[in-house]
Write a protein that binds this DNA or RNA. Structure first.
Length: 162
DNA sequence: CCCTGATTCGC
DNA sequence: GCGAATCAGG
């Protein structure tokens, strides 16, 4: 493979979009990340706008409800097969939890809804914190969400009440 | 060990 | 100009 005008343009676009060199290499195909990096330098666009110092892992969806469906999408990079995790948000309204109601693990007790929201290893993890229903670990809303068959969730769409 | 970009240097 | 090898780092 060679650097045709077309491939260079695509490289510029993907690079400015913040994709990593190896991701771009996979996108272009028949090329290694070294080739991409080398080309990027030769083109003089090495410094990127929004490149965090840390090796930012796979871009994820901003939020996770903590009850997302994990999906694996296989990807071939060079001669290596990789599998990335993606997450699907089944119920956006689960995030409609008032900020002042949300609780950390240490703030939970028998009377608070212990429904987890978000990635437990991330900074945005919290528990619902609403008033737990009688003899239940969750508030009435999350009881319905938790005990309802997954296929029925879309049909009912209960309004969140804490 | 996974990944990231940066650099070098023979081709 | 190209990119594998290598380096430095998270």
């Amino acid at each position: 493979m060679s650097w045709t005008d077309e491939r260079v343009e695509l490289l510029k676009k993907l690079w400015s979009d913040g994709l990593s060199a190896s991701q771009i290499a996979a996108e272009l195909g028949g090329i290694t990340r070294n080739a991409v990096i080398g080309k990027v330098h030769r083109l003089g666009l090495s410094g990127r706008a929004k490149s965090p110092t840390s090796s930012a892992p796979r871009p994820r969806k901003a939020r996770s409800s903590g009850h997302m469906i994990r999906v694996q999408r296989p990807q071939v990079r060079g001669n290596t097969a990789l599998a990335y995790d993606y997450e699907v948000e089944p119920e956006p309204e689960l995030l409609e939890i008032p900020l002042e109601q949300r609780k950390t693990l240490l703030q939970l007790n028998e009377k608070t809804c212990r429904w987890p929201v978000g990635d437990p290893s991330g900074p945005d993890f919290f528990f619902c914190g609403g008033e737990a229903a009688e003899d239940q670990p969750y508030c009435s809303f999350h009881c319905r969400v938790a005990y309802q068959p997954a296929n029925d969730r879309r049909r009912q769409k209960p309004a969140f009440r804490g």
